[in-house]
């Protein structure tokens, strides 16, 4: 153990590595307190004397003081949050291994790349998931089997859009465009007689667009004392809901009514 302490990584490396792990937890849908807790734990495990972490939905700031008086402070900007719950779990595992010394800090990058590659589902299965999700909820909210099938088809289209739009395009705009297209397609499919109720088809596809994860997380963040982060997420999910409403409203206005 004494030898390990001698070749201990520098404060900069420790903070950078801890931020790498924290960034991936936040990016893939983890809670704020989990991010802060993980960063603090990793830094402490590598001998940091004092750790300060502050996280909001789009930024992580971490500052560390080593016993020899060396400081390091770094920050990370987070751009787009998505739902990859398997990554949150994988990062949790990596953090545990880092802290126990099972995974050397020099291998962290490789471990993260490895975890990213381990997608639990094939792309085809993900589209099947979209079929289940949109179709299932179209029926859940009172649609017929035909409505469910229409919603499923539109759901696949939306998922395709979501996966293939460049990351630099504003998320609000993507949401408006997706909702508009989903609304237009839903009304079209019911007008030509494939679906029965345009409203049920659209509700099924709305469920895919609604930021359910952000909403649930925002409440849990605020309860954990991260009021700012929670409020940010709440406002974000409310804005997204508004954009969805706007997109569908446009679709209904263009086609002149859903009925």
């Amino acid at each position: 153990m004494a030898e390990e302490k001698l070749v201990a990584p520098s404060a900069d490396v420790i903070v950078c590595s801890a931020l790498d792990v924290g960034e991936h937890i936040l990016k893939n849908g983890g809670e704020i307190h989990r991010v802060e807790d993980t960063i603090e734990r990793i830094c402490k495990a590598f001998g940091a004397e004092h750790v300060e972490v502050f996280t909001i939905t789009s930024l992580i700031v971490a500052s560390v003081r080593m016993p020899n008086g060396v400081y390091s402070q770094q920050m990370r900007r987070i751009y787009r949050v998505s739902n990859n719950l398997y990554m949150v779990e994988a990062m949790n595992g990596i953090s545990r291994k880092l802290c126990s010394g099972e995974l050397p800090i020099s291998n962290l990058r490789a471990a993260i790349v490895e975890a990213k590659k381990k997608k639990p589902y094939h792309t085809a299965i993900i589209y099947l998931g979209a079929v289940f999700a949109a179709g299932g909820f179209a029926a859940f909210f009172g649609g017929t089997i035909f409505d469910a099938l229409c919603a499923a088809a539109i759901g696949v289209f939306i998922t395709f859009l979501d996966r293939h739009t460049p990351k630099y395009i504003n998320r609000m705009i993507i949401t408006v465009i997706s909702s508009l297209l989903a609304g237009l397609l839903g009304i079209l499919l019911s007008k030509i007689g494939v679906g029965t109720y345009a409203d049920k088809i659209m509700i099924g596809t709305i469920m895919l667009l609604i930021p359910g994860l952000s909403f649930g997380n925002s409440i849990r963040d605020m309860l954990g004392g991260d009021i700012i982060s929670g409020a940010l997420r709440l406002i974000e999910s409310l804005l997204l809901a508004l954009m969805i409403a706007f997109g569908f409203a446009l679709a209904i206005l263009i086609t002149g009514g859903a009925a």
């Binding site: 997608k119 289940f132 949109a134 299932g136 029926a139 859940f140 998922t159 895919l208 359910g212």
Partner: peptide
């Protein structure tokens, strides 16, 4: 629907 979302959420 929940099965679908679980897959989508990874």
């Amino acid at each position: 629907g929940t099965i679908g979302f679980s897959v989508l959420f990874g």
